[in-house]
Design a protein around this nucleic acid. Sequence first.
DNA 1: CGCGACCATGCAACGCGTTGCATAGTGGGC
DNA 2: GCCCACTATGCAACGCGTTGCATGGTCGCG
Lengths: 178, 178
Amino acid sequence: MSLAHALLTSLLEQPSSGYELARRFDKSIGHFWQATHQQIYRELGRMEKAGWIRSDADPDAGRTRKRSYGVLPAGRDELMRWAAEAAPLPELRDEFMVRLRADAVVGPLGLLPELERRRALHADKLRAYRAIEARDFPADAEATRQRRIHHLILKAGIQYEQGWVAWCDEAMRELGRA
Amino acid sequence: MSLAHALLTSLLEQPSSGYELARRFDKSIGHFWQATHQQIYRELGRMEKAGWIRSDADPDAGRTRKRSYGVLPAGRDELMRWAAEAAPLPELRDEFMVRLRADAVVGPLGLLPELERRRALHADKLRAYRAIEARDFPADAEATRQRRIHHLILKAGIQYEQGWVAWCDEAMRELGRA
DNA sequence: CGCGACCATGCAACGCGTTGCATAGTGGGC
DNA sequence: GCCCACTATGCAACGCGTTGCATGGTCGCG
């Protein structure tokens, strides 16, 4: 049930509506935990029932259906309880490796273009992460605990994409000389 | 529907029973595509209905319930058709990053031990992959196309675990001096 | 004034993956 | 001779994540 806890975290950072959460997930948290607006609305409903969050009609009442959510003490407690739990490592799970293995067993399937496509996608993400890093974590900035942690998370993404770009390069060399 | 195609690949490499597939998934293919025996039996049933594979009672008939599966031409065609498709990049999806972010917003939650645990788990996997590499891909071995591809897949795992070990080290330094 | 883009929430249904349990035969160890 | 571990397959149920669709309001543009 990480989604609930990701939402609690996001709501603690900034109380918001389901819609705003959905958009924020597309940016910061979405880099390592994705969710659609459907999941988010459904989960917010459950969390409210559980007494972890409460909602109130937005200030611009009447005009829109917008509702804003805030974390209740019980929600904060739950988040702290959960954060201390041990969790299994996320498993590597990649269709493309299945394709490669299929290529190995049924003969050349022309995977080079797909490999190039993947390389480009990873390189795009890497560039985007680096841009965020340059903007949000300049060398001379004051490093609070919070900022250092956020930077650490970003570096995980950078490391991840960088690794894949490097692997794609190697794989292209290997597949190329087939 | 990658599971079906992973099974087709595995069955082309070596016709087998559901049980054997389940065990093989724990080793080779399972490194990048996991499946429980439940999923496998269910999927084999569907694939047989679809005419991609056929089963026959095992030679030691009568004694056990064992059934062996083999890929039919339609299954082979389907695998080749699928392998050429474009696929979205697998997304990074990691609970621990949510925990870190929670730590940043509700104060120190004592994540260092968990970080050490993760580092050890990644290092274990890395060591296991390196052992497989030393055993199956010695420098002097003949490099067929198939072997080069299998090595490439293994290197993806090595690269992946290596990256996480390095990141854990950095994260431990950062969290340590808090 | 109408239309398209965006804000904002939600229902219904499906599928993959997970969990718990059931069944039954076989082979080895104490 | 009994118990345990392993081989081998399967049912039932649940939950998360996905997809397609529906609804209705606001705001800017031509």
